[in-house]
Every structure is written in structure tokens, then in C-alpha cells.
């Protein structure tokens, strides 16, 4: 008798290691790793390279843990939205209890390890970040207010501040501006996505701005946030982490982002339907590049500073 014959179809849903890893939202984690690394490297002072590696790993694991707890709590709406239906819990590969256990274990692990490796201020900041994402955003704001993404976006904006705190043991104007850059970037980034994934959120009953206030209001909000974002992004060029490379990058990217926001603002629903949200999709793609290049420019300033090329 072959071993295969004793298995029922239900058992074939058993999770692989990759399914458990998917609970940590690896794509979101990559953004967390990158921005935390820039915050850590741009901070004044020095840290042993291995301690820096452990710090970034802990921040990444903390981000992943909050992703797992988010999937545990949001399993009901993930099962409705096409974008999230294939996630490990709605697809039946991982149980909610397993996701909860992994999320809680990794949360404690990441905070304690960061505290032991660097300092307890950074560890406390990481614990607050996890709390903010899981409790404030996922459990409270997401299903309650159309401003969910605005306030909840703070959770994704904390990692560079945690990275900075890992070196300095505190906060500064520069780390706060890095936070504000991601904080102000998140709403236009997500609202652009909502404009071309509109039925997903409506079906799941998530009060996204386009569902509660309509698409014209969402377009207005995208434009206003993009203008405010440009002021913060360009303003950072004149701090200790800025320089000519950053300033040029910020000026070009913010001009492009503003043009994109104005194009979205001027569009009608009919025009969106006619070209299948081409402009919104392009704006969403640009938003990913926008954040990566801003933090990449800060990294370039830091890397070139010892050679007399970076900074002012």
C-alpha cells in the first residue's frame, strides 16, 4: 500500500514552511528592513556591525510579528477580498490560533532581543509600534473610520525611528522627519490602490475613504496629502541627513508625484473606467519608487559623507 492512499484531501492543506513565513508579510517586511536600516545608518554615533545586523533583524521580526497578528484578526475580511484570499489563514493552510501564537511569540522575542542588543528605549519603541499596528490600527481604526489609513500609517512609519533609537537611544528632528515622510506618503499610496481595488474594500465592509466619502473626495485627499508630503520631503534635505543628492532626488520625485496627484484629481470616474485606472496604477507604482529613492538618497548621503561628497 502506498503511503499516499491514507491521506484525505483536507490534509493536503497542511502548511509548508513558506506558508508560515508568508504570515510575516515579507513584502511589507522588506520596506521595514530598508527604512530601519537607513534610520540606523544615518544616526550619529557608532554601533558594532553585528549589533546593527541584530537590531535590523529584530525590527524586521517585530514588523513580521505584527503582520501575523494582523492576519489572525483580519482573517474574516481577508477571506472576502480577492487581493487577500490566498493568504495562509483564508486559504486554510494555517489556523488562526497558529498565526496568533507565532505573532505573539515573535513580538516578545523581537522586543527582548532588541533591548538586549541595543537599548531599552528602542525596544520599547518597537513594542509600541507592534501595539499600534495590531491594536490601534487593525483592531480599532481599520473597521471604524475612513481615516484608518492616515492614523494607522504611523505604524509603518516608526521603523526608521526605531533604527535611529537603536544607535542614539532617543529621537531627533531627523528621525521624526523620516517618520513623517512615510506617515504622509501612506495615505496617497493606499488611496490610489483603493481607487482601482474599490469593490474589494466595499465587499469586506472596510470603511475606506472611497467607500464612505466617494471617489472625488478620495482624489481631493490624495492631492492635499501629496502637497503636504512634498513640503516634508524637501524640508528634510536641509537637516543633517540631507545634502545635494537628497535635495535633487526629492525635487524631481516630488514634482513627478505632484503631477501624478493632479492628474488623478482632474479625472472623472468615466475616464478611469475607460482606461482601466491607468493613471491611478501608474501613481501607485511611482509611490513605491518614491519612498525607496528618498531613503536611498539618505543612504547615499551617509555613504558618501566620509569621502567629502555627502551632506552639506
Amino acid at each position: 500500500m502506498s503511503d499516499a492512499s491514507i491521506h484525505t484531501p483536507a490534509q493536503t492543506k497542511e502548511a509548508s514552511f513558506g506558508d508560515f513565513f508568508a504570515l510575516l508579510k515579507p513584502r511589507v517586511m522588506s520596506l521595514v528592513v530598508f527604512t530601519a536600516m537607513v534610520g540606523l545608518l544615518a544616526a550619529p554615533g557608532s554601533i558594532h556591525p553585528f549589533v546593527a545586523f541584530v537590531a535590523i533583524l529584530c525590527i524586521a521580526i517585530g514588523g513580521g510579528a505584527s503582520g501575523a497578528l494582523n492576519m489572525w484578526y483580519d482573517a474574516d475580511i481577508d477571506a472576502i477580498m480577492t487581493r487577500t484570499q490566498s493568504r495562509p489563514i483564508p486559504s486554510g493552510k494555517v489556523t488562526g490560533g497558529e498565526a496568533y501564537a507565532i505573532g505573539m511569540t515573535l513580538s516578545v522575542f523581537s522586543v527582548v532581543m532588541l533591548g538586549l542588543a541595543t537599548n531599552w528605549f528602542a525596544a520599547g519603541f518597537l513594542a509600541f509600534t507592534i501595539f499600534f499596528y495590531v491594536v490601534i490600527y487593525t483592531m480599532w481604526l481599520k473597521r471604524w473610520t475612513p481615516q484608518n489609513i492616515v492614523i494607522g500609517g504611523a505604524a509603518g512609519a516608526f521603523p526608521p525611528m526605531v533604527g535611529w533609537a537603536a544607535v542614539t537611544g532617543g529621537v531627533s528632528v531627523e528621525s521624526t522627519l523620516m517618520f513623517l515622510l512615510i506617515f504622509m506618503w501612506t495615505p496617497p499610496h493606499f488611496w490610489a490602490l483603493c481607487l482601482f481595488m474599490k469593490t474589494d474594500y466595499r465587499d469586506a465592509g472596510v470603511p475606506m475613504l472611497n467607500v464612505t466619502h466617494g471617489r472625488p473626495a478620495t482624489r481631493n485627499h490624495i492631492l492635499v496629502y501629496t502637497i503636504l508630503l512634498a513640503a516634508i520631503a524637501i524640508g528634510m534635505a536641509f537637516t543633517s541627513v540631507g545634502g545635494m543628492i537628497y535635495l535633487v532626488t526629492a525635487l524631481v520625485l516630488n514634482a513627478m508625484f505632484l503631477v501624478g496627484a493632479v492628474r488623478i484629481w482632474r479625472r472623472s470616474d468615466a475616464a478611469c473606467e475607460a482606461d482601466e485606472h491607468k493613471v491611478e496604477k501608474r501613481f501607485f507604482g511611482l509611490s513605491l519608487l518614491y519612498l525607496f529613492l528618498h531613503f536611498g538618497a539618505i543612504l547615499a548621503e551617509v555613504a558618501l559623507a566620509p569621502h567629502g561628497l555627502g551632506g552639506w
Binding site: 500500500m1 503511503d3 499516499a4 493536503t12 509548508s16 514552511f17 508560515f20
Partner: peptide, 19 residues
């Protein structure tokens, strides 16, 4: 005896190895 590993065995092995 005929012994053929089911796909699920590979998955379990991968999970154990990952852990």
C-alpha cells in the same frame, strides 16, 4: 513493499528543516 512519499511528507520535511 511499494513506498512512495506523498507530497505532504516533502512539505513536512521542509517545515522541520526550516524550523
Amino acid at each position: 513493499a511499494i513506498h512512495k512519499d506523498h507530497e505532504i511528507h516533502h512539505r513536512r520535511f521542509g517545515r522541520n528543516l526550516g524550523l
